[in-house]
Amino acid sequence: MKRYGAVLGLKPEAVADYVRVHAAVWPDVLKQIKNSNIRNYSIFLKQPENLLFSYFEYVGTDYAADMAAMAADPVTQEWWSVCMPMQSPLETRKDGEWWASIDEVFHTD
């Protein structure tokens, strides 16, 4: 298992809508997350800065293939088309990233 964390901005005018849609994530999106070997997935919101922090554990063996399968899923693509206009990627993210990856510096069980 590998742990992943990432950060992303959220447009101030979209906070209420983002929270609302995530209170009822579409069942097929949740199914795809599970099928892509993601477990213990959480998104946290830090206000008033409107920063989103995501955390998940990957339990598969081919991360690139599982993420590609998720990205190719039509329902997930539709979900992203709802969520992405509300988001504001960090200027300091790496090329190709939407959510900026962050490094784990401490963990305890």
Rank of each mutant, 00 (worst) to 15 (best):
M86I: 11
Q87R: 05
G9M: 04
R20A: 15
T108P: 02
L52Q: 04
I38A: 01
I102N: 02
V75H: 02
F106A: 14
T92H: 03
V29S: 04
R39V: 12
I43A: 01
M67G: 03
P89R: 06
V105K: 05
V59I: 15
A65C: 01
D66G: 03
W26E: 09
E13G: 07
P85T: 11
A23K: 08
V59S: 08
K31G: 09
K11D: 05
V7W: 00
D103Q: 13
A23F: 01
I102H: 02
K31S: 12
N35F: 03
V29A: 02
T92L: 08
L90V: 12
S81E: 08
G9Y: 02
M84V: 13
G96C: 10
N37F: 02
V59A: 05
M86A: 09
G5E: 00
N50M: 04
S88D: 15
M67I: 13
W99G: 12
W26S: 02
Q47K: 12
M1I: 10
W80M: 07
S54R: 04
D73Y: 05
D62Q: 02
V82N: 02
E78T: 13
Y41F: 13
W80H: 08
D17E: 15
H107V: 15
Y55S: 06
L10C: 12
Y63P: 02
A64W: 00
K94T: 14
V21P: 01
V15P: 10
I43H: 00
M86S: 07
A72S: 14
V15Q: 06
E57I: 12
G9A: 07
S101E: 13
A100S: 14
M84P: 05
L52M: 09
W26P: 00
H22D: 09
V105C: 08
V75F: 02
A64N: 09
A24C: 07
G5Y: 03
K31E: 15
V29Q: 01
R39M: 01
R20G: 08
K34G: 04
Q77R: 14
V7D: 03
Y18N: 10
N35P: 01
E91V: 15
T61I: 04
S36Q: 00
K11P: 00
A6E: 12
N40I: 03
R20M: 08
L8Y: 04
K46E: 13
P27N: 05
S36D: 02
L52C: 07
L8I: 14
W80R: 05
P74T: 12
L30E: 13
D62A: 06
A14Q: 13
F53A: 11
M84R: 13
